[in-house]
Each structure stands twice: as C-alpha cells, then as structure tokens.
Amino acid sequence: MTFNNQPKNIEEPANLDQVMDSLRKLDVRNRKLMQGMYIVYVVFALIYTGLLILNPDPELTLNHRLQGGMYVLIFGMSAIYFRYHFRKNKSVDYSAPVLEMLTAARKRHKLWTAGTVGFIIAMVGLTDIVVTWAMLDDKFLSDYSQIIRILIIQSAYFLTMGISFLIGYITWRRKSMPLVHNLTRIIEEMEQGE
C-alpha cells in the first residue's frame, strides 16, 4: 500500500529539502563566481605579463618592472586559488556517508577557513606592498613627506579593503549563513549520541 503524504514540518528551519535546495543553488552560484574570477585573474596576469615583457617604454625603470612582476604573481596566485576552489566545489562526492557530505558542504560555505584566511592575508599583504611601492613614486602625492604619503596610501588601501570585506560579509550573511546554521543543526542532530 502506498501513501503519499505531505510533510507536516515543511516550515521547520532545518528542513533538509530546503537546505539541500539552497545548497545546490549556492554551489552553482559559487562555481560561476569562481570560474569568473579565475578568468578575470588569468586575463589580468596575461596582460601584465605582456606589458612587463613587451612594453618598450624607455621610462619604465627596473622598479616598475618588479612591481609589474609582483602584480603578475598576485594575479597568478589568485587565479590558482579560484581554480582550485572551482574544481573542489564541482566534485561533490556523492559516495561519501551522508554526515560526511553535509560536513563538507558546511565547510565549503563557512566564512572563514584556515586556507581562506591564509590566502586573504597573503594577497592583502602583497597587494599592500606593491600598491604602496608603486604609489610612493606617484606625482600627485609628491607635495607630501614620505610618512604622510605612506599614511594616505595605507588609509585609502585599507578603507577600500574594509568596504570590500563588508560587502562580502553582508552577502555571505544573507546567502550562506542561514545555510551553514541549518547544516549545523542537521549535523548536530545526526551526531547526537555519538
């Protein structure tokens, strides 16, 4: 005998169907985002490499070329990072136990992981060095002393980084945080009694 019953607890926050639906959509969105970022960084890395090697401008000093090299390094590392996460996101292991699959999904959507923190610190630090180095020579700050110039550059740079982080955090809080909370509840329920 067959019964087709409508679930009564459809509005529960930890409804797995709802969680999996959100998870699938977010995974697709993140894959597209990571692929897009990968392409952007590869293009930038290629353009900067081209400029670095081919630019015949006689005013380009060794410093300029070294700064260009650092940009290529930053773009290249970013491209590798996004490519790695794109591939990782794409290959969901359906043959893993349910708990393992859900735990991996939660990890994918957490705001901070050791790898992400390391990557962000490295990129923000490297970019800060190269931007500061490049802008110190810039003419529009030439009226100020070196200390003031550094302070202006650092303030502008970290303000930009702060705003970018805030936008990223708000987006994560709106889209991924409820999913992470729901996955945590389901995982905790599964692990109860372990």
Binding site: N5, P7, D17, R24, Y94, V98, M101
Partner: peptide, 21 residues
C-alpha cells in the same frame, strides 16, 4: 550512499519541497 545523497540533493522542480513517501 550515492542514492540517498543524490536524493537529498535532488530538487523537485515542480514543488520546492520533496515529499517523503
């Protein structure tokens, strides 16, 4: 495992929520 994990990820395209029969 594959069947259950795929089923959990499966989205019913007509109804947003899957029925559990």
């Amino acid at each position: 495992r594959i069947a259950v994990n795929t089923a959990l990820s499966f989205v019913n395209k007509k109804n947003k929520y899957l029925n559990f029969n």
